[in-house]
Design a protein around this nucleic acid. Structure first.
Lengths: 134, 134
DNA sequence: ATGATAACGGAAACGGTTATCATCTTCGAA
DNA sequence: TTCGAAGATGATAACCGTTTCCGTTATCAT
Protein backbone atom coordinates (compact mmCIF):
# COMPACT_ATOMS: atom_id res chain seq x y z
CA UNK A 1 0.00 0.00 0.00
CA UNK A 2 2.41 2.60 -1.18
CA UNK A 3 -0.04 4.21 -3.51
CA UNK A 4 -0.22 7.64 -1.94
CA UNK A 5 0.98 9.33 -5.07
CA UNK A 6 0.36 12.85 -3.85
CA UNK A 7 2.92 12.68 -1.12
CA UNK A 8 5.86 14.42 -2.70
CA UNK A 9 5.26 18.05 -3.47
CA UNK A 10 5.44 19.10 -7.08
CA UNK A 11 8.28 21.40 -7.91
CA UNK A 12 7.50 25.04 -8.49
CA UNK A 13 7.96 25.85 -12.13
CA UNK A 14 7.02 28.72 -14.38
CA UNK A 15 4.83 26.39 -16.41
CA UNK A 16 2.76 25.13 -13.52
CA UNK A 17 2.24 28.66 -12.31
CA UNK A 18 1.11 29.68 -15.78
CA UNK A 19 -1.36 26.82 -16.01
CA UNK A 20 -2.79 27.79 -12.63
CA UNK A 21 -3.15 31.36 -13.80
CA UNK A 22 -4.93 30.27 -16.95
CA UNK A 23 -7.29 28.12 -14.93
CA UNK A 24 -8.01 31.02 -12.61
CA UNK A 25 -9.13 33.06 -15.61
CA UNK A 26 -12.53 31.49 -15.93
CA UNK A 27 -14.85 29.06 -14.30
CA UNK A 28 -15.90 27.06 -17.31
CA UNK A 29 -14.57 23.66 -18.11
CA UNK A 30 -11.86 23.86 -20.76
CA UNK A 31 -9.86 21.29 -22.65
CA UNK A 32 -6.12 20.91 -22.43
CA UNK A 33 -5.84 22.24 -25.95
CA UNK A 34 -7.89 25.33 -25.18
CA UNK A 35 -5.75 26.07 -22.16
CA UNK A 36 -2.65 25.54 -24.23
CA UNK A 37 -3.88 28.07 -26.79
CA UNK A 38 -4.83 30.56 -24.06
CA UNK A 39 -1.37 30.30 -22.55
CA UNK A 40 0.28 30.89 -25.90
CA UNK A 41 -1.86 33.96 -26.48
CA UNK A 42 -0.96 35.54 -23.19
CA UNK A 43 2.69 35.03 -24.03
CA UNK A 44 3.34 32.36 -21.45
CA UNK A 45 4.29 29.59 -23.82
CA UNK A 46 3.91 26.15 -22.32
CA UNK A 47 4.31 22.98 -24.32
CA UNK A 48 1.21 21.00 -25.06
CA UNK A 49 2.72 17.91 -23.49
CA UNK A 50 3.34 19.82 -20.32
CA UNK A 51 -0.18 21.17 -20.24
CA UNK A 52 -1.50 17.62 -20.38
CA UNK A 53 0.90 16.42 -17.72
CA UNK A 54 0.20 19.37 -15.46
CA UNK A 55 -3.55 19.02 -15.69
CA UNK A 56 -3.34 15.31 -15.00
CA UNK A 57 -1.18 16.04 -11.97
CA UNK A 58 -3.56 18.71 -10.70
CA UNK A 59 -6.49 16.38 -11.17
CA UNK A 60 -4.65 13.76 -9.18
CA UNK A 61 -4.19 16.05 -6.22
CA UNK A 62 -7.73 17.34 -6.47
CA UNK A 63 -6.63 20.84 -7.38
CA UNK A 64 -8.80 20.71 -10.49
CA UNK A 65 -11.89 18.85 -11.58
CA UNK A 66 -11.58 16.70 -14.65
CA UNK A 67 -14.58 15.31 -16.43
CA UNK A 68 -14.85 13.36 -19.64
CA UNK A 69 -17.48 14.72 -21.98
CA UNK A 70 -19.82 12.57 -23.99
CA UNK A 71 -17.52 12.80 -27.01
CA UNK A 72 -14.56 11.53 -25.03
CA UNK A 73 -12.62 14.75 -24.63
CA UNK A 74 -11.44 15.50 -21.11
CA UNK A 75 -12.06 18.99 -19.78
CA UNK A 76 -10.75 20.73 -16.69
CA UNK A 77 -11.78 23.42 -14.27
CA UNK A 78 -10.40 24.61 -11.00
CA UNK A 79 -12.39 23.10 -8.22
CA UNK A 80 -14.90 25.25 -6.41
CA UNK A 81 -15.94 22.72 -3.85
CA UNK A 82 -13.51 20.39 -2.28
CA UNK A 83 -14.28 16.74 -1.93
CA UNK A 84 -16.31 14.47 -4.12
CA UNK A 85 -19.11 16.01 -6.14
CA UNK A 86 -20.84 15.86 -9.49
CA UNK A 87 -21.80 18.26 -12.23
CA UNK A 88 -24.94 19.61 -13.76
CA UNK A 89 -23.96 20.74 -17.23
CA UNK A 90 -25.92 22.76 -19.77
CA UNK A 91 -25.61 20.98 -23.08
CA UNK A 92 -26.15 24.26 -24.89
CA UNK A 93 -23.79 26.78 -23.30
CA UNK A 94 -21.67 24.58 -21.08
CA UNK A 95 -22.64 26.37 -17.89
CA UNK A 96 -21.92 24.12 -14.97
CA UNK A 97 -23.15 23.75 -11.42
CA UNK A 98 -21.48 21.54 -8.88
CA UNK A 99 -23.82 19.37 -6.91
CA UNK A 100 -23.25 17.07 -4.01
CA UNK A 101 -25.31 13.97 -3.47
CA UNK A 102 -24.32 12.07 -0.38
CA UNK A 103 -27.30 9.78 -0.84
CA UNK A 104 -26.14 8.84 -4.31
CA UNK A 105 -22.64 8.06 -3.10
CA UNK A 106 -24.04 5.79 -0.45
CA UNK A 107 -26.36 4.13 -2.91
CA UNK A 108 -23.54 3.43 -5.37
CA UNK A 109 -21.31 2.00 -2.67
CA UNK A 110 -24.09 -0.14 -1.29
CA UNK A 111 -25.10 -1.54 -4.66
CA UNK A 112 -21.48 -2.34 -5.48
CA UNK A 113 -20.98 -4.00 -2.13
CA UNK A 114 -24.10 -6.11 -2.58
CA UNK A 115 -22.54 -7.49 -5.75
CA UNK A 116 -19.24 -8.08 -4.03
CA UNK A 117 -17.38 -5.38 -5.88
CA UNK A 118 -14.42 -3.62 -4.30
CA UNK A 119 -12.37 -0.52 -5.09
CA UNK A 120 -15.51 1.19 -6.18
CA UNK A 121 -15.63 4.40 -8.12
CA UNK A 122 -18.37 5.96 -10.16
CA UNK A 123 -19.08 8.62 -12.70
CA UNK A 124 -22.22 10.69 -12.70
CA UNK A 125 -23.00 13.71 -14.79
CA UNK A 126 -26.34 15.36 -15.31
CA UNK A 127 -27.05 17.10 -18.59
CA UNK A 128 -29.83 19.52 -19.32
CA UNK A 129 -30.70 22.91 -20.68
CA UNK A 130 -30.06 25.74 -18.26
CA UNK A 131 -32.56 28.50 -17.50
CA UNK A 132 -30.93 30.93 -19.93
CA UNK A 133 -30.96 28.49 -22.79
CA UNK A 134 -34.47 27.20 -22.26
CA UNK B 1 -49.79 8.46 -41.77
CA UNK B 2 -47.20 8.66 -39.10
CA UNK B 3 -47.76 11.43 -36.66
CA UNK B 4 -44.09 12.13 -36.23
CA UNK B 5 -40.70 11.31 -37.58
CA UNK B 6 -40.92 7.69 -36.59
CA UNK B 7 -37.84 6.00 -37.93
CA UNK B 8 -38.02 3.79 -40.94
CA UNK B 9 -37.11 0.20 -40.25
CA UNK B 10 -33.52 -0.69 -40.97
CA UNK B 11 -32.99 -2.90 -43.94
CA UNK B 12 -32.21 -6.53 -43.32
CA UNK B 13 -28.65 -7.23 -44.36
CA UNK B 14 -26.25 -10.07 -43.84
CA UNK B 15 -23.99 -7.75 -41.90
CA UNK B 16 -26.56 -6.63 -39.39
CA UNK B 17 -27.60 -10.20 -38.82
CA UNK B 18 -23.98 -11.16 -38.27
CA UNK B 19 -23.43 -8.38 -35.76
CA UNK B 20 -26.54 -9.44 -33.89
CA UNK B 21 -25.28 -13.01 -33.83
CA UNK B 22 -21.90 -11.90 -32.51
CA UNK B 23 -23.59 -9.88 -29.80
CA UNK B 24 -25.73 -12.86 -28.84
CA UNK B 25 -22.59 -14.89 -28.29
CA UNK B 26 -21.77 -13.43 -24.93
CA UNK B 27 -23.10 -11.10 -22.33
CA UNK B 28 -19.99 -9.04 -21.77
CA UNK B 29 -19.47 -5.58 -23.04
CA UNK B 30 -17.23 -5.66 -26.09
CA UNK B 31 -15.70 -3.00 -28.24
CA UNK B 32 -16.46 -2.51 -31.90
CA UNK B 33 -13.00 -3.77 -32.75
CA UNK B 34 -13.41 -6.92 -30.68
CA UNK B 35 -16.71 -7.66 -32.36
CA UNK B 36 -15.13 -7.00 -35.72
CA UNK B 37 -12.38 -9.51 -34.96
CA UNK B 38 -14.88 -12.06 -33.68
CA UNK B 39 -16.90 -11.74 -36.87
CA UNK B 40 -13.84 -12.20 -39.01
CA UNK B 41 -12.89 -15.32 -37.08
CA UNK B 42 -16.23 -16.93 -37.51
CA UNK B 43 -15.95 -16.29 -41.23
CA UNK B 44 -18.65 -13.68 -41.40
CA UNK B 45 -16.53 -10.82 -42.59
CA UNK B 46 -18.03 -7.43 -41.89
CA UNK B 47 -16.21 -4.20 -42.53
CA UNK B 48 -14.99 -2.33 -39.50
CA UNK B 49 -16.81 0.77 -40.63
CA UNK B 50 -20.02 -1.20 -40.84
CA UNK B 51 -19.55 -2.63 -37.38
CA UNK B 52 -19.25 0.88 -36.01
CA UNK B 53 -22.26 2.10 -37.93
CA UNK B 54 -24.34 -0.90 -37.00
CA UNK B 55 -23.55 -0.66 -33.31
CA UNK B 56 -24.33 3.03 -33.31
CA UNK B 57 -27.64 2.32 -35.00
CA UNK B 58 -28.50 -0.44 -32.55
CA UNK B 59 -27.64 1.78 -29.64
CA UNK B 60 -29.92 4.45 -31.09
CA UNK B 61 -32.88 2.11 -31.18
CA UNK B 62 -32.10 0.71 -27.76
CA UNK B 63 -31.32 -2.74 -29.10
CA UNK B 64 -27.93 -2.62 -27.41
CA UNK B 65 -26.42 -0.81 -24.47
CA UNK B 66 -23.44 1.37 -25.18
CA UNK B 67 -21.24 2.70 -22.45
CA UNK B 68 -18.04 4.68 -22.58
CA UNK B 69 -15.31 3.24 -20.42
CA UNK B 70 -12.97 5.30 -18.32
CA UNK B 71 -10.35 5.24 -21.05
CA UNK B 72 -12.79 6.63 -23.59
CA UNK B 73 -13.43 3.48 -25.59
CA UNK B 74 -17.06 2.70 -26.26
CA UNK B 75 -18.25 -0.83 -25.58
CA UNK B 76 -21.50 -2.55 -26.45
CA UNK B 77 -23.69 -5.32 -25.18
CA UNK B 78 -27.13 -6.54 -26.03
CA UNK B 79 -29.56 -5.19 -23.53
CA UNK B 80 -30.89 -7.53 -20.88
CA UNK B 81 -33.30 -5.22 -19.18
CA UNK B 82 -35.45 -2.85 -21.07
CA UNK B 83 -35.91 0.63 -19.84
CA UNK B 84 -33.54 2.94 -18.09
CA UNK B 85 -30.81 1.37 -15.98
CA UNK B 86 -27.17 1.69 -15.08
CA UNK B 87 -24.14 -0.55 -14.99
CA UNK B 88 -21.77 -1.94 -12.45
CA UNK B 89 -18.64 -2.84 -14.38
CA UNK B 90 -15.55 -4.74 -13.32
CA UNK B 91 -12.57 -2.76 -14.48
CA UNK B 92 -10.51 -5.91 -14.63
CA UNK B 93 -12.55 -8.50 -16.51
CA UNK B 94 -15.41 -6.40 -17.80
CA UNK B 95 -18.09 -8.39 -16.04
CA UNK B 96 -21.19 -6.31 -15.80
CA UNK B 97 -24.32 -6.16 -13.72
CA UNK B 98 -27.28 -4.02 -14.60
CA UNK B 99 -28.71 -2.07 -11.73
CA UNK B 100 -31.75 0.08 -11.37
CA UNK B 101 -31.87 3.02 -9.01
CA UNK B 102 -35.20 4.78 -9.00
CA UNK B 103 -34.05 6.94 -6.12
CA UNK B 104 -31.10 8.17 -8.13
CA UNK B 105 -33.29 9.05 -11.08
CA UNK B 106 -35.55 11.08 -8.85
CA UNK B 107 -32.60 12.76 -7.18
CA UNK B 108 -31.07 13.77 -10.51
CA UNK B 109 -34.35 15.17 -11.77
CA UNK B 110 -34.96 17.06 -8.57
CA UNK B 111 -31.49 18.59 -8.45
CA UNK B 112 -31.73 19.65 -12.07
CA UNK B 113 -35.16 21.16 -11.51
CA UNK B 114 -33.91 23.11 -8.50
CA UNK B 115 -31.34 24.74 -10.75
CA UNK B 116 -33.92 25.47 -13.42
CA UNK B 117 -32.57 22.94 -15.89
CA UNK B 118 -34.89 21.29 -18.38
CA UNK B 119 -34.62 18.35 -20.77
CA UNK B 120 -32.63 16.51 -18.21
CA UNK B 121 -30.62 13.38 -18.84
CA UNK B 122 -27.84 11.76 -16.92
CA UNK B 123 -25.08 9.21 -17.15
CA UNK B 124 -24.07 7.01 -14.28
CA UNK B 125 -21.68 4.09 -14.28
CA UNK B 126 -20.15 2.34 -11.32
CA UNK B 127 -16.70 0.81 -11.66
CA UNK B 128 -15.04 -1.62 -9.32
CA UNK B 129 -13.31 -4.93 -9.02
CA UNK B 130 -15.64 -7.91 -9.07
CA UNK B 131 -15.50 -10.79 -6.57
CA UNK B 132 -13.49 -13.00 -8.94
CA UNK B 133 -10.89 -10.36 -9.62
CA UNK B 134 -10.47 -9.20 -6.06
C1' DA C 1 -37.35 -7.47 -63.18
C1' DT C 2 -36.17 -2.69 -62.17
C1' DG C 3 -34.62 1.45 -60.21
C1' DA C 4 -34.10 4.52 -56.28
C1' DT C 5 -31.57 4.54 -52.42
C1' DA C 6 -29.91 2.49 -48.22
C1' DA C 7 -26.00 0.04 -46.88
C1' DC C 8 -21.40 -1.50 -47.42
C1' DG C 9 -16.29 -1.35 -46.93
C1' DG C 10 -11.35 -0.38 -47.74
C1' DA C 11 -8.44 3.40 -47.29
C1' DA C 12 -7.33 7.66 -45.63
C1' DA C 13 -8.13 11.29 -42.49
C1' DC C 14 -9.13 12.93 -37.92
C1' DG C 15 -8.35 14.41 -33.17
C1' DG C 16 -7.26 13.89 -28.57
C1' DT C 17 -3.75 11.95 -25.99
C1' DT C 18 0.65 9.67 -24.82
C1' DA C 19 5.57 8.10 -25.61
C1' DT C 20 10.23 9.35 -26.74
C1' DC C 21 14.38 11.42 -25.54
C1' DA C 22 17.62 15.12 -25.44
C1' DT C 23 17.92 19.27 -22.80
C1' DC C 24 16.99 22.39 -19.05
C1' DT C 25 15.53 23.56 -14.11
C1' DT C 26 14.88 23.05 -9.36
C1' DC C 27 16.34 22.55 -4.73
C1' DG C 28 18.63 20.33 -0.97
C1' DA C 29 23.05 18.85 0.60
C1' DA C 30 27.80 19.96 1.11
C1' DT D 1 27.37 29.42 -2.99
C1' DT D 2 28.11 25.57 -5.60
C1' DC D 3 26.92 21.20 -7.45
C1' DG D 4 24.46 17.47 -9.25
C1' DA D 5 20.75 14.04 -9.14
C1' DA D 6 16.07 13.78 -9.68
C1' DG D 7 12.42 16.15 -11.70
C1' DA D 8 10.40 18.72 -15.37
C1' DT D 9 10.11 20.37 -20.04
C1' DG D 10 8.78 20.26 -24.98
C1' DA D 11 9.18 19.36 -30.09
C1' DT D 12 8.13 15.58 -32.63
C1' DA D 13 6.37 11.27 -33.63
C1' DA D 14 3.56 7.80 -32.81
C1' DC D 15 -0.87 5.83 -31.03
C1' DC D 16 -5.54 4.31 -31.38
C1' DG D 17 -10.37 4.49 -31.55
C1' DT D 18 -13.43 6.52 -34.51
C1' DT D 19 -15.28 8.95 -38.62
C1' DT D 20 -15.26 10.48 -43.36
C1' DC D 21 -14.86 9.65 -48.16
C1' DC D 22 -16.71 7.76 -52.14
C1' DG D 23 -17.19 4.15 -55.53
C1' DT D 24 -19.60 -0.32 -55.35
C1' DT D 25 -23.24 -3.53 -53.93
C1' DA D 26 -27.58 -5.17 -51.94
C1' DT D 27 -32.34 -4.38 -50.57
C1' DC D 28 -37.11 -3.91 -51.44
C1' DA D 29 -41.41 -1.43 -53.06
C1' DT D 30 -43.38 -1.20 -57.35
Amino acid sequence: MSSDGARVALRATRQRTAVRAALADGDQFRSAQELHAALRERGAGVGLTTVYRTLAAFAETGEVDAITREDGETVYRRCAESGHHHHLVCRECGRTAEVAGPAVERWADRVAAEHGYTEVAHTLEIFGRCPNCT
